[in-house]
Design a binder for these strands. Structure first.
Lengths: 333, 333
DNA sequence: CGGCGGTGTGGTTACGTTCTCACACTTGCC
DNA sequence: GGCAAGTGTGAGAACGTAACCACACCGCCG
C-alpha cells in the first residue's frame, strides 16, 4: 500500500530514477525505447507523482490561492467559477479561502498560500496587508473587483463610476430628482467609484446633492432594514439606486412589504445582475457586470504574469452595462 | 529573498533545527526559554513553514479535495461554501475542482488529489471510478448529494424520495391528476429517488402512472425547452414537478412566456430552494434542502473519519422540507 | 552510590522529486 | 584522425521538515 515512487518504476523498467524522472516529466533526453518502457511501467503500477516532493524541489507549486469574502454570495461564487475554469485548462489547482471580509482572516490566508508556495494569489481584497505580505515574498497577486494594494500589482475591475453614473443618469433622465443611494460603507474602490458616479451624474444634471438621500451601510450591519425604512419614511425618494446585489435585494423586499409598486411609486436600480432580478415582476433595472468573465480574466492575467514576471502591472477595467427593465419608469405625479 | 527556513531561525536563536522544529510545531520537549527565543526569532525573520516539505515528510497534507459539477450553480456553490467554512476552522484547506459532470474529469481530479496527498476528498460524484481509485489508495471519500460508490464510503444525502413524495402528494391532494415530472436522466441516486417518490405518491393515490407525463432530460441537453414545450402541447398536465432547480427555472420561464398563470392554469413545484423562487410572484412551492448544512456535515464527517480511520462508513440522510407557496393551488376546472 | 525516569538537546536520516554534473557513445566535419 | 556537437544515461546532491535515536543532565529513590 506504499505509494509507487519514481524509483519503483525505474527499477521496473530497468533504468535509473533520473531517467524515469525525465521520461515522465518530459524534460531532457530519453530514448524512445526507454520512455516507452517507463510509461508502460508507470501505467502498470499506477504511479501518481508526489506533488509535494516536486514542489519542494522546484520551490514552487501548481496551486493558485483564491480568497473571496463569501462563497455563498453568488457574485463571489461566479468569480471563483471563472477562475477555476481558466486555471484548470492551464493545469493549475485552485485553493479557495473565505475571509469574512475580515482583514485578519485575509492575512491568515496569505500566510497559508505562502506556506503552500503558491506562485500566485487572486483576491477580492479587504485590506492591503495581505497583498503587501505576498508581494514582498515574491508572490504574484491579482486584485479583483476592487483595488486596495499599496504596492504595484495586477488587477481586474469594472468601471464602477461609469456604471453608477449611467444608472443614476437613467433615473434622472426619467425625471427623478430625489434619487437615493444605498451603498456599502467601505474604503473599497468599488463602493467609492459607485458613490462618485452617483454624485457625478447628479451634479451633471444640475441637481443639488442631498446627503440625507445617501445611506451608507456598514459591513455586517444588523440594522440595514431600519436604515432603509428610515430613508423611506423621512426622505421619500422617488427612486433608489442600490449599489450592490444584497442591498438591492433588501430594498426590494422592503418596498414590496410596504406595498409600494415598481416603478409607479418608486423606481429601483441595482448593481450586479443576479438571476432573481430578471425574473421578478417587474424585472429590476440593473448595472450588469461580467462576473464570470472577470474571474477568467483575473486568472489569465495571473498566468501571464507567471510566464513573464518582469512585466509592468496591468489593471484591466471592464465595462458594465446598464440593463433597463421594468423597475424604473418616469416619475409619478 | 530566499524564504526563511527552520535552520535560519535555529541559527538565530542558537539552537539546532530539531529544537526549532519542536518549538514551532509544539511536539516534543523544548525548554520555555528556548521556545521563547525561537518564537521570537521566527516572528522577527518572518518565518513561513514550508507546507510541501511538511507534507513530504509526514506523507499527508492539510488539503481536502472537493469536486463539484459546476461552481456556477448555486447549489454546488453553497455546498462548497459550507465545506470551506468547516474545514477552515479545523485548519484544513479546500482545493476545488470542477468536473463538468464528466466522469473523465472527475477521475483526473482524483489523480490530482492523490498527487497532493490529500487525506480526504468530498465530491458530488459523477461516476464510481474516481471514488474507487481514491479509496484503493487509502484516501477517505465522502459523497454528497448522491451515492454512486461501489466501495464503502461515507455520504451525506437528503431523502429525495420523501421530498418528491411530499411534493407530488401535495399536488395530488390539491386534486391534480395529470401531474408531470421533469427529471434529469442520470443514474444518480438523487434523480432516481425523486422519480421513485413521484411514482410512489401517484401509486398511493390510486392514480394510474402515465409515462408520457414523465420527461427525462439528459445532461447537457440542448433541447430541454422543446421537450417541455412538447409536454405542455401534447399532454396538458395540470401540475408540474420539476425535480431540480435548473429544470424548475426553465419550466417557469416557459410557462410565463406562454402566458400561463400560476397556479390557476398550472401548478408548479420545484426541488432545491434558490433565491428567485421565493421572490417571484407567485412564489414557487419547493422541496427545500439544507444545502449549506449538507456541505458542513460532509466536511465534519470527513474530519471525523480522518480522526478515526477505522470507523464504519456513515451515510447521513437529511430531511428536506416542503415549502408551500403560491405556485400551487387547487386544480382549475 | 548506582540506576532510573523525566527533561532537554542535537545529529542524522528519510520523505520523492528534480537538477546539475560527469561520463559514454555516436555522428559529422574539417 | 581528432575535435566538437548532439544524444543518452546514471550518480548524487539538494529542497525543508519531522521522526528517530543517542546522549547529557537533573533529581530521586532504594
Amino acid at each position: 500500500m506504499r505509494p509507487v515512487t519514481l524509483a519503483d518504476i525505474a527499477r521496473e523498467a530497468g533504468t535509473s530514477a533520473s531517467t524515469a524522472s525525465r521520461a515522465l516529466s518530459g524534460r531532457g533526453y530519453v530514448s524512445p525505447a526507454a520512455r516507452a518502457r517507463l510509461l508502460a511501467a508507470a501505467d502498470r503500477l499506477g504511479y501518481v507523482p508526489n506533488a509535494s516532493a516536486r514542489t519542494l524541489k522546484q520551490r514552487t507549486s501548481r496551486v493558485v490561492g483564491v480568497v473571496v469574502s463569501d462563497l455563498g454570495n453568488q457574485f463571489y461564487a461566479r468569480l471563483a467559477a471563472g477562475i477555476e475554469q481558466t486555471l484548470r485548462v492551464a493545469d493549475y489547482q485552485m485553493v479557495v479561502l473565505g475571509d469574512n471580509s475580515e482583514s485578519a482572516e485575509e492575512v491568515a490566508g496569505a500566510r497559508t498560500f505562502l506556506a503552500m508556495r503558491a506562485p500566485g494569489v487572486i483576491m477580492t481584497p479587504v485590506g492591503s496587508e495581505a497583498t503587501e505580505l505576498l508581494v514582498a515574498q515574491g508572490t504574484a497577486v491579482v486584485e479583483v473587483d476592487r483595488q486596495l494594494a499599496t504596492v504595484p500589482c495586477d488587477g481586474v475591475v469594472i468601471d464602477n463610476e461609469l456604471g453608477a453614473r449611467e444608472a443614476t443618469g437613467h433615473l434622472l433622465g426619467l425625471g427623478h430628482r430625489r434619487v437615493a443611494l444605498l451603498v456599502a460603507e467601505t474604503d473599497w474602490t468599488s463602493d467609492a467609484g459607485r458613490l462618485r458616479g452617483y454624485l457625478g451624474a447628479i451634479h451633471d444634471a444640475n441637481v443639488r446633492v442631498d446627503e440625507r438621500l445617501i445611506v451608507r451601510v456598514p459591513h455586517h450591519a444588523v440594522d440595514t432594514e431600519e436604515r432603509i425604512d428610515a430613508l423611506l419614511d423621512q426622505e421619500r425618494p422617488t427612486a433608489i439606486f442600490a449599489a450592490n446585489n444584497t442591498l438591492a435585494e433588501q430594498a426590494w423586499r422592503i418596498l414590496r412589504r410596504r406595498g409600494l409598486r415598481l416603478p409607479r411609486d418608486v423606481s429601483l436600480v441595482g448593481f450586479d445582475d443576479v438571476p432573481w432580478m430578471g425574473m421578478v415582476e417587474p424585472a429590476i433595472t440593473v448595472v450588469a457586470q461580467p462576473t464570470l468573465h472577470m474571474g477568467r480574466r483575473a486568472a489569465r492575467l495571473l498566468l501571464e504574469r507567471l510566464a513573464e514576471p518582469g512585466r509592468e502591472p496591468v489593471v484591466e477595467c471592464l465595462q458594465p452595462v446598464l440593463v433597463v427593465r421594468g423597475s424604473t419608469g418616469p416619475i409619478g405625479h
